[in-house]
Computed example of a mutant assay.
Amino acid sequence: MTEELVTLETAKLLKDKGFNWKCEHLIDRNKVITKYNLPQSMSCCMEIDDESVEFLCPTLYIAQKWLREIRGVYVYVEPVIGKRWKLSFCDFNVPTEESDWMENEINKGNGYKVYVTYEEALEAGIQEALKLI
């Protein structure tokens, strides 16, 4: 079994929000993924003319864990009928009665989006959470 890595878009959002956990993979601006034997940190990621051209590329699980442990936002995927998936969020930084603000902001009265795969849903949830924090 291979764990799914985040996409370039998610890797960029993670960097913007301060993600700096060591990873075995980097992704460059051309979406080329490089694997290293030893985990790399943000200091290894290349910049040209103050523009990042390489980004840490964690697994979806690590990105989800970082959001939960460092930023206090829990993104989780729930099954729906027809072998589809939907997103839910919990923000531990606000009072319990307000913890669904993120989910409400993302859905904006349009109902929840349904995804074909668990991984697709988790990636979308991580991206949406990163955009709101």
Rank of each mutant, 00 (worst) to 15 (best):
C45D: 04
M102G: 00
Y115N: 08
D100L: 07
L56F: 01
G111Q: 13
R71I: 10
S41A: 01
E97D: 15
T117Y: 10
V53G: 03
Q40C: 07
G109E: 14
M102K: 09
P58D: 02
Y118H: 13
Q40K: 14
E47H: 03
E54L: 06
C90P: 03
T96C: 09
V94E: 12
K65M: 14
E47M: 09
C44Q: 14
W85Y: 08
L56R: 02
W85L: 07
A124H: 04
G111H: 04
K113T: 05
N37G: 05
E54G: 00
R68F: 11
S99C: 10
V80C: 10
R71K: 15
L56I: 03
A121M: 12
E119Y: 07
K108M: 09
R84A: 14
C90H: 15
V94S: 04
V80M: 05
E123R: 04
E98G: 05
E119T: 10
I48V: 15
V73D: 08
M42G: 04
E120P: 04
E120S: 10
Y74I: 12
R84M: 13
Y36W: 08
N107T: 15
I48G: 11
Y118Q: 13
E69M: 12
R68W: 15
K113D: 08
P58A: 04
M46Q: 13
S88R: 12
P58Y: 01
E119Q: 08
Y76V: 11
K83I: 04
K83N: 11
M42H: 12
E78H: 03
V80H: 01
Y74E: 11
A124Q: 03
T34Y: 09
K83H: 06
T34H: 13
E54A: 00
T117V: 12
V77P: 01
T117K: 14
S99R: 15
C57G: 02
F55K: 01
K108N: 11
G125L: 07
I81P: 01
L67S: 01
N104E: 15
V116K: 08
L60N: 01
S88C: 08
W85D: 03
W85S: 02
K108A: 13
E47N: 09
K35T: 07
R84T: 09
N110R: 14
E120N: 07
E51D: 12
P58N: 03
W101E: 03
N93K: 15
G109L: 14
P39Y: 01
E120R: 07
S52D: 03
N93D: 13
S52N: 03
S88L: 12
